[in-house]
Amino acid sequence: MTLRVTGKVVTPTGVFRQGCVEIAGDRIRAVAEYPTVRDGHWIVPGFVDMHTHGGGGHTFTTGDAESARQAAEFHLGHGTTTLLASLVSSPFPLMREATAAYRPLVESGVLAGVHFEGPYLSAARCGAQNPEFLRDPSTEELAELIELGGGAVRMVTVAPERDGALEAIKLLVGQGVVAAVGHTDATWEQTRAAVAAGASVGTHLFNGMRPVHHREPGPVVALLESPNVVCELVADGVHLHDGMLGFATSVAGPERAALITDAMAAAGMPDGEYELGGQAVTVADGVARLSRDGAIAGSTLTMDAALRHAVAAGVALPDACRMVATTPARAIGLGDRVGALQPGLRADLVVLDDDLNVVRVMRAGAWVE
């Protein structure tokens, strides 16, 4: 049975103003002009969130499989058809438990993988990471987690200046795991060394990083100028000024800039008191901050809201769609499966109205209820 979805179709190479996505089973069979279409909705690729900690009142950070399933379901309703479950810095036993708990969810396709944001991070740039759990990278721990996950561990964020960081990055890359640079006080030279060792992602660029200085460019410049590095950007108007969002996008280009949510459990929920990695978080006016010191503690963002914000900030819609789908999919090694409206890829798409609000979501050829 063939299904046709018609409207203004956004592809990696442009827009079919009168377009059709033809779907057979769980795959896209064709994308083409469809002259009989008049003033349809926007048809864009399903969003790929490579960095999210939870949403809808549920979290990925505790290793609870049912909570993870419900967080993924919440984000699916906002158009995110592929996501990584991001943990925060934790004791090793919790990292093991989460890897084992989430492996079946990865194998069944609920999650695309696990992202460990820490604990191998800088104390000076820990942000909302719990400083109690920060430590130097351990190749022994990483090797054990990778084996335990059986392919579930997809990305690990490391601060390059910590002892053993380059060895850890080489191990990760050698095992097919994405090594990311983040929560770091590294110099430009140290960051360049991490990239040379195989690091290919900048974790929420600017946030949790040594600031740019004209006599010490630091990690931001080293990551932006590296042609093989995808830079994550949190487009919520809180993590980044819109001028900085536009600047980073113009430097990296949409093929190296990926929008993420960095969302926590409070996404989609009322203001109030929450928890992240064992630390109290207060959400006020939709902004999540550590209760103890006011540090930004993730976000309450969803990927559809990130897309709207980026477009309102001046990013062209086709570029913004690359940044919420095609680029992150490629960054985490899934670009041959998802992330674009192209024949042969999984039939993941989002139907948006002219204000870019979600109308319908399709995942693997089936409409999401």
Rank of each mutant, 00 (worst) to 15 (best):
T139H: 07
G57Y: 05
L142M: 14
T61S: 14
R135I: 08
R103L: 09
T157E: 05
R135F: 14
L148D: 03
E107P: 00
G77E: 06
G56M: 05
L87I: 12
Q129K: 07
D39G: 01
A32M: 09
L142D: 10
G56V: 01
E147S: 12
P137D: 01
T99Y: 05
R103Y: 11
I23H: 04
V106Y: 03
W42V: 01
T80C: 11
L145W: 07
D49G: 07
A72I: 02
T157D: 06
V156Y: 13
M95Y: 06
T99G: 03
T80W: 07
V114N: 01
R154H: 13
R38Y: 01
G55F: 12
D64T: 07
I146D: 09
Q129M: 04
D49S: 11
D64L: 06
G150W: 14
M95Q: 15
M50D: 00
G55V: 13
D64W: 09
L148C: 11
G54V: 13
A98E: 00
G118N: 13
A152C: 03
E141T: 08
E140K: 08
Y34G: 08
E141M: 12
G25F: 02
C126E: 05
R125K: 14
V153E: 03
R27M: 04
H75K: 09
E132D: 13
E33Q: 14
G25E: 08
Y120T: 10
G127Y: 12
Q70G: 00
F116D: 02
R38H: 13
Y120L: 06
L134P: 05
M50H: 08
L84W: 09
R38L: 12
L145S: 10
G40K: 06
L111I: 10
S89M: 03
S90R: 12
L142T: 08
A72C: 02
V110A: 12
D163C: 03
A128M: 05
P160K: 00
A85R: 06
L142A: 12
T82S: 15
S89G: 06
V31T: 03
A32Y: 04
A100Y: 08
T99L: 03
I43S: 01
